[in-house]
Amino acid sequence: MFKEITCSINGKECTKVIDVRASLTDMLRNQYHLTSVKKGCEVGECGACTVLIDGEAYNSCIYLAVWAEGKSIWTLEGLMSPDGELSDIQQAFIDEAAIQCGFCTPGFVMTTVEILNQKKLYTRDELRKLLSGHLCRCTGYQNVLNAVEKVMKDRLNQ
């Protein structure tokens, strides 16, 4: 069974015919070659495949591609500005040594986008909870937390 799905991906209107059995991960990786969307468990436990759908973070592995119809989807590939400048979140991940093997990084960055869009000043414990849908084996989460906190404070001029 196939179906035509139209949605906005990284700010661009797109239409493709997809197999209705596909997950959103499948669609983004295979049809749109957005390979920042990683597969670590395929059951919503690791967070590596996280993308934003209408501004909220979802595990794209357990989201049917057909549900993307009419939605606005953002992946890591969409964060860089047109002139090639990194987003402040990406830069902070580099500066704070928050990246090691890099496999969980795209998901973390996307969740951070959702968190920081709230424009709230969170405590470190609150940030831990907001980031807790991602597993990482390299960093012990320490520098990821530092990076997210840094951008949050910078944005709020704290």
Binding site: I94, G102, P106
Partner: peptide
């Protein structure tokens, strides 16, 4: 900074 950080943080690093 890590030499591969840019590629990893932009999703370009290919696994």
């Amino acid at each position: 900074p890590r030499v591969d950080a840019f590629d990893k943080v932009t999703g370009r690093a290919k696994y």
